[in-house]
């Protein structure tokens, strides 16, 4: 019973995070900021939803499969995200709003 409520709370929090990430995809000013909004839905949201579902499944093969899905997402999402941002950088896309702030202006970034 308690486990049911706990898993329901985890899944609900994950769904809320996923909707917030979707809104963030539209509120952020440029591509590099949208990368962070997608980062939310890739890490904590998927972790909460898969964890809540595995609480419902209990100790079985289903929760092992959920754990494997989680591990795959954990290992592939930073690689996909890095290759996206790196190819955007190589293509010449400059981040917006960076020049106004002090610590970044002192560093020579493009070599």
């Amino acid at each position: 019973m308690i486990l049911d409520w706990l898993s329901a709370a985890l899944i609900a929090a994950g769904a809320l995070l996923s909707v917030i990430g979707g809104i963030g995809l539209h509120r952020m000013p440029d591509f590099y900021c949208r990368l962070h909004a997608v980062g939310i839905t890739d890490t904590l949201c998927s972790f909460l939803i898969l964890g809540g579902l595995s609480f419902q499944a209990g100790l079985s093969l289903a929760s092992v499969k959920l754990f494997l899905i989680f591990v795959f997402l954990l290992f592939t999402s930073p690689t996909a995200s890095y290759s996206l941002s790196h190819s955007a950088w190589k293509w010449g896309l400059n981040p917006k709003g960076v020049e106004d702030h002090a610590p970044s202006a002192k560093i020579k970034v493009r070599e």
Binding site: F31, R34, V38, T41, S46, L53, L73, S81, W91
Partner: peptide
């Protein structure tokens, strides 16, 4: 606006599809 935004959105769409399939399984 750029092609990278589109690929990013498609990547997120795929991740959500994985979660949706897991929820549908339950």
């Amino acid at each position: 606006p750029t092609v990278f935004d589109r690929i990013l959105a498609v990547n997120m769409f795929g991740t959500k599809a994985v979660l949706l399939v897991a929820v549908v399984a339950f």
